[in-house]
Nucleic acid binder design. Sequence first.
RNA 1: GCCCCUGUGGCGGAAUUGGUAGACGCGACGGAUUCAAAAUCCGUUUUCCUUACGGAAGUGCGAGUUCGAGUCUCGCUGGGGGCACCA
Length: 862
Amino acid sequence: MGVYGMSRYNFLEVEPKWRDAWEKGASFSASEDAGREKYYVLEMFPYPSGRIHMGHVRNYTLGDVVARYKKARGYNVLHPMGWDAFGLPAENAAMENNVHPAKWTRENIASMRDQLKTLGLSLDWAREIATCEPEYYKHEQKMFLDFLEAGLAYRKESWVNWDPVDQTVLANEQVIDGKGWRTGAVVEKRQLSQWFFKITEYAEDLLKALEELERWPNKVRLMQHNWIGRSEGARVRFKITGRDDELEVFTTRPDTLFGMSFCAIAANHPLAEELGRTNPELASFIAECNQMGTSEEAIEKAEKKGFDTGLTIEHPFIKDRVFKIYVANFVLMEYGTGAIFGCPAHDQRDLDFARKYELDVVPVVLPKGEDPKSFTIADDAYTGEGALFNSEFLDGLGVEAGISAVIERLEKLGSGNGTISYRLRDWGVSRQRYWGCPIPIVYCDDCGAVPVPAHELPVQLPEDIDFEAPGNPLDRHPSWKHVACPSCGKPGTRETDTFDTFVESSWYFARFCDANNDHQAFSRSSVDYWLPVDQYIGGIEHAVLHLLYSRFFNRALSQCGYMDLAEPFAGLFTQGMVCHETYRSDEGAWLFPNQVNRSDDGALSHVDTGAPVKIGRSEKMSKSRKNVVDPVDIVNGYGADTARIFMLSDSPPDRDLEWTESGVEGAWRFVNRLWRSIVDVDESAPIAALNSARPTSLSEAGTSIERLIHKSIAGVTDDLEKFHFNRAIARIRELTNSIFEVSGTDAEAAWLRRFGLETIIRLLNPMAPHLTEELWERLGHGDMLVATDWPSADESLVVEETVTVAVQVNGKLRAKINLPRDADSTTAEQTALADENVHRAIGEKEPRRIIVVPNRIVNVVI
RNA sequence: GCCCCUGUGGCGGAAUUGGUAGACGCGACGGAUUCAAAAUCCGUUUUCCUUACGGAAGUGCGAGUUCGAGUCUCGCUGGGGGCACCA
């Protein structure tokens, strides 16, 4: 008991008590049960950096609410947790602190697990996995072998983004503004032999299936749609003048073929490279293009440049006309065929290029209402609809009809065909790093790249490695890579590249179904039962890569017989970021929130020096800006449940959340008000005994409270189904306020208090599990709330008997009247017109029309 | 440049999807309690006019549809995000 007889929620005692009880009771252990409907809740697993942050707390709290709610609804819930444990930070730590990546990672896992456990999450820890352990990655190596056999994995020479600091290859998507996403180093282009997964094999299906993912945010579906980037068009093969070979281009506008005035190829197009070998000027132009990198910023700032190769091509339809081939800095080798034809009149970029090099601009699409004799192109290319002209056999056709006609003609002549092109490229998975899953391949001078036989798996990482030099420790290890060729027995060398860590996270959702299976990744029956994930929750930053790769793996694994599933994640929820105000000293140095004092008048000063502090806008919590609040401090200071309630209270979960100290205080006040109402029962406000019967009749006021309780059950249930957790909390607080207002010591009041408080506790349980278990027990219950069913509302009490109906005159609110529910129009009209205010508003005039919407509104039009 | 989302009190946000705008919380102000403070409790809190009853305006701005618009349509404007010489 505290001062003045008030007790406080003692989370230091209560929270561990219930976590122990849940563990002892194996409350969250999941097992397959064909007789029960399953529900698989998954949050994106964390990288084991060593400390949890507020983003984790938010993510896992959201998932936990879903998991606990679904469990109470009777589902057989699977809610697992693991560690995305391979990755570069472990190697960086190894270099900086001379600690082995495995040791560093395992210690981080241990401390993060402890921190996570204090949040009281309903996780089945028996299924915990860490992707860096051979027990996990050996199955991944087997999948790779199966992908190879199915033609879904292959090796090719390819241009890669080379990060000179990490000495590793980056995916296109990991290059941001020409710089490595982790190191910020300027990325170079290099050619390396790389392993690829054939994600493009499924491009069409990955695109089409997006339509079926109804429980995914539209935003994410749209992003994937754009990423896959399907475009219909044609490939056109031009004969190169005086040579035997052809130049193949891709175009989405074959209808404009008669408006062509040049061709352009990418700097690393095979033809450009060939010509560059004998032409030093061209070679230096190519070098210039390569230097530009794939950086969009560099490309944008650079002007459109071309280099005349001296070669020309012949037009398939126009006799005796040839067009120059340029090497151009704006043509990308990775898209289409790495070559284009330019039609300046109908493409802005081509027009700019044509003006620069004084090439013809021939319009071939005539906008409606223009005269073909006078229509010319000035500074703006015309990209709209119209009738084709200047185009021989196409004249008069529309754009779409023109496209089909050209394709038909090209196919007849054998100089082209209709085709579909995708922006999506195959997934390069080779990384020149130590701390990743080894790629199970042995290179042999005679046999080439030979897969390691399945029975020899896993290929394990060697423990004795050094990080003295940059680059890959596996490559310079004295003995590890030297092995006999599995095929012929001669000396060979292992592949020293390891997998991109996105590979591990592409199938972990399935491993959780059968996490302790030693001889296979997962049994068929386990994934048949548990998959797909019913609700996946994580950050929007994974909208494209992780989610697309997982969808690919799902298809590849199904093709290889591991499972039979259309999509891995039936429902997806993307949460917003956790933000906080930023603080800086006068000198501009960032300050942590706990270094800042706020005086009564709101002025900010430094805790130690008293110097004034400037307040900045709220931004995503990040170490660099120091605007971070450590979840451990919050859990130690207020308890996990207060943190959870605050996390869920104010902001809808898909929006950014502003972390405020006063908001946490507000949640803390609510927790204690509820606590005291049950623990410090005032004799003026008694609570009825456990299992007291409802009084046979209730007063009018009592009935309305009883109705409110049932309405709250229905409302909160609906909110939780729709992820409106902030509204659910608001409803619970509303009900709490009303129950606290119940006065009297009679049986009715006591019964209403018990029914109300028990309902509040049960509704709040998914959000504040420790607090509510304790209060449930203090209310006299012997069973645990975690094993109690979700309350159900009496539908007959959810709908009110009398309703308040608004009365408008000419659309303006003039009065509110009470009517029996579903009163007929005549009654509503008459009651409305009888109202004094309504009467005054109408005055002398005659109502022209009266609109009655039952139970809602009466609008008198005069 | 293209595409998507978004704009509601001092602040975070509600609003049964076209039917009573501002639930719930934060902050602020006033009061009770206290020697005082913290904690707690009770009020008030969109703006303007009015002593009051009540009235007027109000969901970024401007139009429109409708008996009725925060919600639908069009235009403008601010903010956020995605994609990008993608042929």
